[in-house]
C-alpha cells in the first residue's frame, strides 16, 4: 500500500519546481503505470518512492509508515538496469541478499530458483556485458525479486528492447506480479505498455508535474488483453489525453 498526499519537490534551492501537488494511492497487489512527457518529473517521483531522493513537502507513506530512505520491501529497477559490470549474473542477483546479511545457503536457494524461473541459469557465470538487452532486464528482475519485496518500482523497464522481446518480458512480468503478489509502479513512455501493465494509469502534465488524470483500466492483467478491443480503446483514450498535455 502506497499513499502519497500533496507531494511537492523542488531542485536548485526552489528555482526548479518538479512535482507540484501529487496525490494518489496504490493498493496492495495493484499496479499503476505512470505516463507523461519527457522530463516532467516521473523519474523523480519514482526516486522519491524508492527512498533515493528526499521529498520536499507532503506525505508519503508505505505500508502505513512514513517513508524514510530505501527499504528492503521496495525493489527498484533503474532505467539501464544498474547491473554491476564487474559482477557475474549470479553475483548481481545475490548482491541485495549479501548486503542484508542473508546466509550463503539461503542465497544459493533463492538465486537458483530465480535464475531457473527466468531462464538464466546457463548464463550465471557470465558478466553482464555478454548479455543481450532482454537478458539484462531479466537479471535485473531476478535481482529485484531476490529480497522478496512487496513493492516493485520500474523506470522505463523495456524502453531499450525490440518489440518481440519487450512483449515477452511484459508477459513474464505479468506472471511474476501475480505469483509474487507485487504492488507495482512503473514509469513508461509507451502508451501500449501502460495500458497492458497498469491496473490504473496516471497521466502527468509537463513540468512542474501535476496529475492530469488517473484512469482505471480494469481489463489489464491477462495476456489476452493485448488482442482485445478494450485494449485498443483504452490506448486511444490515453493517447488523446497525452496529446492534450
Amino acid at each position: 500500500m502506497i499513499h502519497v498526499e500533496s507531494l511537492h519537490k523542488e531542485f536548485d534551492g526552489g528555482t526548479l519546481r518538479v512535482l507540484d501537488g501529487i496525490d494518489f494511492s496504490v493498493a496492495d497487489g495493484e499496479s499503476m503505470a505512470i505516463i507523461g512527457p519527457s522530463g516532467c518529473g516521473k523519474t523523480t517521483l519514482l526516486y522519491i518512492l524508492a527512498g533515493l531522493t528526499a521529498y520536499g513537502t507532503g506525505t508519503v507513506t508505505v505500508n502505513g509508515t512514513p517513508l524514510q530512505g530505501p527499504s528492503r520491501d521496495t525493489a527498484f529497477i533503474l532505467q539501464d538496469f544498474g547491473l554491476l559490470p564487474w559482477k557475474t549474473i549470479w553475483q548481481n542477483v545475490c548482491l541485495g541478499m549479501k548486503l542484508h546479511g542473508v546466509s550463503r545457503p539461503e542465497q544459493n536457494t533463492v538465486a537458483t530458483e530465480l535464475l531457473e524461473t527466468l531462464g538464466l541459469m546457463q548464463h550465471r557465470n557470465y558478466y553482464p556485458a555478454r548479455l543481450s538487452g532482454g537478458e539484462k532486464q531479466r537479471v535485473a528482475i531476478a535481482r529485484a525479486l531476490a529480497l522478496n519485496p512487496d513493492i516493485l518500482l520500474m523506470d522505463e523497464p523495456f524502453s531499450s528492447l525490440d518489440t518481440f522481446t519487450r512483449e515477452k518480458l511484459q508477459d513474464t512480468l505479468l506472471e511474476i506480479r501475480h505469483s509474487h503478489r507485487l504492488t507495482m509502479i512503473l514509469v513508461t513512455h509507451s502508451i501500449e505498455e501502460a495500458v497492458f501493465l497498469g491496473d490504473k494509469i496516471m497521466v502527468m502534465s509537463r513540468r512542474p508535474a501535476r496529475i492530469r488524470a488517473i484512469v482505471n483500466n480494469p481489463g489489464s492483467g491477462t495476456r489476452a488483453f493485448r488482442q482485445e478491443d478494450a485494449f485498443f480503446a483504452a490506448c486511444r483514450s490515453i493517447r488523446e489525453m497525452v496529446e492534450e498535455t
Binding site: D80, L83, L84, G96, L99
Partner: peptide, 25 residues
C-alpha cells in the same frame, strides 16, 4: 551514478558501496 543508485536502493551503506562499486570500478 546508476551503480550507486542501484546499490542505495537495496539499502547499501558507504562501506558496502566502496566494497561493491568503487573498489572494483
Amino acid at each position: 551514478e546508476k551503480y550507486y543508485d542501484s546499490l542505495l536502493s537495496m539499502g547499501a551503506t558507504d562501506r558496502d558501496i566502496i566494497r561493491e562499486v568503487v573498489w572494483p570500478a
